[in-house]
């Protein structure tokens, strides 16, 4: 799978930055998407396209449990986030929504916004140019939830 990336290298990009609470009076994905990451990058929504990935540092998605953070990113077209590490509630919310949250401690400064990566989810790596970045393959029980289309689909 090929994807465009948008690099925000700082650590602890929190859910208040991903979707500020002033917009939580809506739970509609299209509405939330208009304001995705706006306090970090006011032009974010203009730059991203369907299927793109975000590259970030450690502790992505820290703070509030608001699942609106996933919905805002997904509504903006983002397919997943590749980060050095994730905050736990965001990570759970991602799995539950079938949204890719890929933990890759070896991310480096060679990754720049605008380049394309080639993702191999089953084998747990992606390539950018000639460089290969390995990540922990997604655990089976998570894969099961994601393949069914999210946690609630496992109830029926």
């Amino acid at each position: 799978m090929q994807a465009n990336i948008h690099v925000y290298p700082k650590d602890s990009i929190n859910t208040d930055e991903i979707i500020p609470a002033r917009y939580l009076n809506s739970d509609q994905e299209s509405e939330l998407a208009k304001h995705a990451l706006e306090d970090l990058d006011p032009n974010f929504i203009k730059k991203v396209g369907a299927g793109d990935f975000i590259i970030a540092g450690h502790d992505f998605g820290s703070g509030s449990s608001r699942e609106h953070a996933i919905w805002a990113l997904r509504g903006a077209g983002i397919q997943g986030v590749i980060a050095k590490s994730f905050a736990r509630i965001f990570y759970r919310n991602a799995i539950n929504n079938g949204f890719y949250a890929i933990e890759c401690p070896g991310l480096d400064q060679k990754l720049k916004t605008g380049i394309k990566i080639d993702l191999n989810l089953d084998q747990g790596f992606f390539t950018a140019g000639k460089k290969k970045y390995s990540f922990t393959p997604i655990p089976d029980f998570v894969k099961d939830i994601m393949q069914k289309g999210g946690l609630l689909k496992t109830i029926q």
């Binding site: 608001r66 699942e67 509630i89 109830i155």
Partner: peptide, 17 residues
Amino acid sequence: GIGSTDAAYVLATGKLW
């Protein structure tokens, strides 16, 4: 703390992983 999907799962089943 959990998100809305986990909450929906608990409200429906009374269980969580």
